[in-house]
Computed example of a mutant assay.
Amino acid sequence: MSNDDEYSATVLGSHWVSGPPSAQPVVAPDRVDGSVMRFGPGVTAAAVAPFPVVPQPVPARQRGGGLRRYALAGAVLAGVLGYLCWQQYGPGVTVRDVAVTTDPAGPACGGTADVVASVRTDGRPGTLAYRWIRSDGTRSERLTEQLARGQQEARLHLLWTFRGQGSHTAEARLELLEPTRRTAAVEFAYGCTP
C-alpha cells in the first residue's frame, strides 16, 4: 500500500484514473436513466451522484393496465357462470300434452291392466310430480319422474290387477301436480265370466 493521503475507499480510487477529485469540475447530466446504485460502507449519495435523482412519473396508459389485461377473461368467466346458473336454476320443464291409454279390451280373468300416461314436454330437464287415482277409490302417494335434458316424453305406468268374476268398468286418472296441474284419464272394461 502507498502512503498517499489522498487515497479513499469510498471514492474507489477515482484519482488514479483522472487525477485528484478536486481537480475535476462536477458536471450534472442533462438526463437520468435508471436508478443510482450504492455499495460499500461509507458511500454517500454525493460521492456517487452529485445531482438529484428525480423519479419519472408512470404514463397514464400504463396505470390500470393490469385490470384491462384481465377484462376479457373476466367477461368470458362471467358469461360461462351465467350460462351454468341459467341451466341449473333457469326455466324448468314445460308440459305440452298429457294422454293416458291402455288396452281397450281390458285385462283377462285375474289379469293386470297396464295403464300408460304419456307426458310430452319441451325437452328441458326437470321433475314431474304426479299421482294415480283409480275408480275403486285408491290413490297413489306423490310420485316423481326425473327428466333429462332433451327428453321430450315421459311414460308413466300404472299396473292395476283384477281378480274375481263379473264385469266392471274401470277408470284410471293421472293427476299431474308439478310443474303445472293437469289431469287425463282412460276408461276400460274388465270382464270375467265362468
Rank of each mutant, 00 (worst) to 15 (best):
P29I: 05
G150A: 15
R182Y: 09
P41T: 10
L143S: 10
Y130P: 06
A23V: 14
Q24M: 10
Y190F: 13
R68P: 02
P29F: 01
P29V: 06
D136K: 02
S22L: 14
G64D: 09
L159A: 11
V27D: 04
A49V: 03
S140T: 15
S35Y: 09
V80I: 15
D136S: 06
T121Y: 00
R139M: 07
T183E: 15
G106N: 05
Q165Y: 08
V48S: 09
D33E: 14
G166T: 05
G19F: 07
T180S: 12
R134D: 14
V32T: 12
P91C: 03
L84Y: 00
R181S: 10
P52W: 03
G64W: 06
G191Y: 08
T44Y: 04
V53L: 10
S2H: 02
P57M: 11
A189F: 02
Q88R: 10
F51Q: 07
V11H: 05
E171M: 05
P179D: 03
P55I: 01
M37G: 06
A117R: 01
P194E: 15
Q152L: 12
C85V: 13
F51K: 02
D114C: 01
L128Y: 01
R181I: 08
V54H: 03
L84D: 11
M1R: 06
M37T: 08
G82L: 15
R68K: 06
A75E: 01
E175W: 09
A46E: 15
A71R: 05
C85E: 12
V95Y: 05
S35E: 06
T144C: 02
L176I: 00
L77D: 03
A184N: 00
A113P: 01
A28C: 15
W86E: 15
A117V: 06
L147K: 00
S8N: 09
A189Q: 13
G34F: 08
R173E: 14
A23I: 11
V80W: 03
T101R: 11
R181E: 13
F39D: 05
A108S: 15
V32P: 03
G42K: 02
S140E: 06
S8G: 05
G164L: 02
A172C: 04
T144H: 07
A113W: 07
V43P: 00
P125L: 09
A78E: 01
A129D: 11
G79S: 12
A28T: 13
R181D: 03
D103Q: 11
T169C: 01
G65Y: 04
S167M: 07
G13Q: 09
F39K: 03
L81N: 04
A9H: 07
E153H: 06
F51C: 02
V43H: 02
S167R: 13
V17C: 12
R31W: 07
L156V: 08
G65C: 08
A47T: 10
E171N: 11
E145G: 00
G74Y: 01
P59M: 06
G82F: 12
G42C: 04
H157P: 10
F39L: 11
L12G: 09
G65E: 13
P194Q: 14
R131C: 08
F39Q: 09
S14L: 11
V43T: 13
A117H: 04
V58S: 10
V27M: 13
A28W: 15
D114G: 09
P179F: 02
V100C: 06
V36I: 12
